[in-house]
């Protein structure tokens, strides 16, 4: 039996506005994401990457087309599809541990069922000892760690990440890449990670798709073994792939 499909996107079209001012960032887009895959979505700014992710999350209704997640049609947001946003989206009025527990606690399960998970992911993202801190007391990178821990602690099947580390410096970003990959390998979640940075995509993904002009322009497997190091920059195959992807991005 083949691996069951994580996400199935068929003829997805999104149009903003109407009349002569109408904009169509996504037109008749098809995409399949197998379960457990780490997919990076590349694309130039304003070409529909975030729109696609918002549709997958159920935050934006497509103008036409269907989305199926694990065999179920997507009709709205759900705890099975967690999302990490580009902006700071974690509530500032919840301490770190309460932020990570926000989703599980909402399901009104007994604390004994979710507390170990919350503790585990707080520890896994390196926030042990900062459980009682307010978000304002943390750096931007640490707030992103809270968001990552919170979405893993909520145990979704699919993780949607919208340029989550775009505003961070290089070193902080690399640290978060390591953390994310460790958690992905530990949990086997399906991840759709949107970025405009080719090197970030090559460092993280099993597979990269380039979205431009409303549809999928390129679809490539990233064959390198993990852990991937900065040596990848010297690798001839990697350079060829990078050049190819950059070409499709119009660079």
């Amino acid at each position: 039996m083949s691996r069951p499909t994580g996400l199935e996107v068929r003829s997805l079209t999104v149009t903003y506005g109407s009349g002569p001012k109408a904009v169509t960032p996504l037109h008749d887009l098809d995409l399949d994401v197998p379960r457990g895959q780490f997919l990076c979505v590349l694309g130039p700014s304003g070409q529909g990457k975030s729109t696609l992710l918002r549709c997958l999350a159920g935050l934006l209704a497509p103008t036409a087309g269907t989305i199926t997640a694990l065999g179920e049609p997507v009709t709205g947001p759900s705890a099975t599809r967690g999302m990490v946003f580009q902006q700071d989206a974690i509530p500032g009025w919840l301490r770190v541990a309460d932020n990570v527990a926000l989703g599980p606690r909402n399901r009104r399960l007994p604390e004994s069922q979710w507390r170990p998970r919350v503790d585990h992911f707080v520890e896994a993202v390196g926030l042990r000892g900062r459980e009682r801190a307010w978000p304002r007391e943390l750096s931007g990178g640490m707030r992103k760690r809270v968001a990552v821990a919170a979405v893993f602690a909520n145990d979704p099947d699919i993780l949607l990440m919208d340029e989550p580390f775009a505003s961070l410096d290089h070193l902080t970003r690399q640290g978060l890449h390591r953390t994310l990959l460790t958690l992905w390998q530990e949990t086997g979640k399906t991840i759709v990670f949107v970025t405009h940075d080719v090197d970030e995509a090559l460092a993280l993904a099993d597979r990269v798709v380039v979205i431009a002009g409303g549809g999928v322009r390129a679809d490539a497997v990233v064959p390198f073994p993990r852990p991937r190091t900065d040596d990848l920059r010297m690798d001839a195959t990697a350079n060829a792939l990078r050049t190819n992807l950059l070409h499709h991005l119009g660079v």
Binding site: G58, L59, P77, S78, A89, L102, G103, A147, N154
Partner: peptide, 28 residues
């Protein structure tokens, strides 16, 4: 900020739960 409420929605909080856990404390 819309992202905060959208974030809560993707954690599985429905409209009533978001009102209680997000809108109310944010407006306080």
């Amino acid at each position: 900020p819309p992202a905060v409420e959208e974030y809560a929605a993707t954690l599985g909080l429905d409209a009533a739960a978001r009102f209680r856990a997000v809108v109310l404390p944010a407006a306080l």
